[in-house]
């Protein structure tokens, strides 16, 4: 994948501030504020009806917000004249025209994006190859299986290497092999290409996204680096098989760390300042104390899973 390199480097690909979207009496976005760093893979996590899809539709100009401001690629809210070909959308439940042939439809999208005529066939072939549909280029969309259609929807989102791709549930409906393949595709994207991914599959968000935001009732309740949100950058978790806890010995070994004992899952959580320690140093000291005290350790892991972090923040 290639990305234009002659433009000034952006700090944020997207800035949303106090965005409100109402459908009659129902408020779908209630002052949503979000900053998506340029070049990041940004995960949007939230329960059903939290406002993730509405947020994407508002960003992509499919819907208009009632209040608030949106700054997309430093050029104001979505405007097809400015953002065509630079911003793409992969909607969750929108069908492609069933009677259209893949190559014709993709050619049409490419022309609208302003891709020069001589490059269209090459660019279309490129994205179809990524999603393993090169051999079906002349097929009609109605002849494709559900999974193939989902892959085609992913392909159209990456046509012409947009600077920002909005992907709503990109991996749903794919078979396990394709999930792996698509995950790798998303990870291998150009350095300056920004992804915003909305998904209920928190394991995939965790694997792909370096930033994450939790949305509930149309607002962001927490956002940050995925490692920071899950605690992977500053917390070690030790599942123990026996107690009592040698808290004094641990405090002596790591005086600037906080220790927390979670009775419900027999886990010792060590929060350490990541500026002065790294995970290996923390492990060396904590495990030495635990082993010296004869305490069994059944599992060691960095931070929480995203799922646990999400449940903690949305509780």
């Amino acid at each position: 994948m290639s990305c234009p390199v002659d433009k000034p480097v952006l700090d944020a690909a997207l800035n949303m501030s106090g965005v409100v979207k109402r459908f009659g009496r129902r408020t779908a976005l209630d002052g949503l504020s979000l900053t998506v760093p340029a070049g990041s893979a940004f995960g949007l996590v939230g329960s059903n009806g939290a406002g993730k899809t509405t947020a994407m539709s508002v960003v992509a100009g499919i819907m208009q917000s009632n209040e608030g401001s949106i700054d997309l690629l430093d050029e104001g809210p979505f405007d097809a004249r400015v953002h065509s070909g630079r911003v793409s959308l992969m909607p969750q439940d929108a069908e492609l025209p069933l009677h259209a042939r893949i190559c014709d439809l993709m050619g049409f999208y490419a022309r609208l994006q302003g891709i020069p005529g001589r490059e269209i066939a090459e660019r279309v072939e490129e994205v179809l190859r990524w999603v393993h549909l090169s051999d079906r280029a002349r097929s009609k969309i109605r002849a494709l299986s559900h999974g193939m259609r989902r892959r085609l929807v992913i392909a159209q989102a990456f046509l012409g290497s947009p600077e920002l791709a909005l992907l709503d549930e990109p991996l749903s409906g794919l078979d396990p092999k394709e999930v792996v393949s698509m995950r790798e595709l998303l990870k291998r994207r150009p350095r300056r290409q920004t992804l915003i991914i909305s998904s209920h599959n928190l394991h995939e968000i965790e694997r792909i996204c370096d930033h994450v935001a939790f949305i509930e009732e149309g607002r962001v309740v927490h956002q940050g680096l995925t490692d920071a949100v899950t605690g992977r950058s500053h917390a070690m978790h030790y599942r123990l098989v026996s107690d009592p806890l040698p808290l004094d010995a641990l405090a002596d070994a790591l005086p600037d760390a906080d220790f927390e004992w979670r009775q419900n899952d027999s886990t010792l959580v060590c929060n350490y300042p990541h500026t002065t320690h790294n995970a290996e140093q923390v492990n060396a000291r904590v495990l030495r104390v635990l082993i010296d005290q004869g305490i069994g350790v059944s599992e060691v892991r960095r931070g929480d899973e995203l799922e646990a972090a999400y449940l903690n923040h949305s509780a």
């Binding site: 499919i62 405007d79 097809a80 065509s84 911003v87 929108a94 069908e95 609208l112 159209q156």
Partner: peptide, 19 residues
């Protein structure tokens, strides 16, 4: 028909509604 199937969303990120 394009609005009801949702396929209009693939177009509206590439061109303006009036066009």
């Amino acid at each position: 028909e394009e609005v009801s199937s949702g396929s209009v969303r693939y177009v509206l990120t590439r061109t303006s509604r009036p066009a």
